[in-house]
Amino acid sequence: MQYELSNKSKRFLEDLRVYLFSSGKKSEEIDEIVEELESHLVEAEQHGKPIEKIIGKSPKDYMETVADEMAIDFRTWFKYILIIIFGAFSFTIFRDVLAGNLSYSLLEIVGHLAITLIFTFLTFIAFKYISSNNFSNTVQLVILYLIGMIPLGLFIGMYFLNESIRTPVIQFGETGSMIVAAITLLFVLAISIWTKTGILIAIVTLLTLPEYLLSKTTLNLETQLILSSVISFGGIGIYLFISSQLNKDK
């Protein structure tokens, strides 16, 4: 016989799942603990016990206790970071290739590479540091946010510097541009296969392709701009919605 949980318990389990997910826990581990708690709640309710008896007075406190016993899933974090870095890179490169041949100043090239290296290095150090120390979740997140802010600051600095300092500009001819684009494409595909998600491909395509195709039309520039951003962001929205629905069904 299948017992239906009370709505209050269902709500709590759903909240717990979201809370643990947003604290960066592994999804299999979340499933496990939520399922176990669910079967406990079923049995407790059959014996007429209120949910307060099980999770204590404050659901929030209880969620924190559960979260503290679970390790943060660094591999997933690392995946997200890689997706973000390569997303930014490939987006810039594809857009520029579609707009014409690539040309970057020396400062831009060196800067991008240096910032990526610094960022990757810092991230590794931070993860090692965090996982070998017993920090609270808040401290861990603060460290990760700070690390995340560093490249952002460096990029902004680099763009300003690029405006004020003239460095030699490197022109990639047609062949050169194609080679760079092909290498980027390979990286994007490799990362998508490794992380088993099409999100990078979807977002980069949606951000670059509509703009390019519209520039081939005879529409005036303003209409092109509006249309391309509507298609890009609408498309990304739809993509995220569909993939979250698919995930739910799994």
Binding site: Y3, H40, E43, I55, Y62
Partner: peptide
């Protein structure tokens, strides 16, 4: 508070002190 036992069970399992297995139940 009854729920506080589960996080503990998780941790002790992870540390290798318990193993777990699933068993069908007639009640749920």
């Amino acid at each position: 508070s009854e729920g506080s036992v589960y996080p503990l069970l998780r941790r002790l399992t992870k540390e290798g002190y318990f193993t777990t297995y699933l068993k069908e139940s007639s009640e749920g």
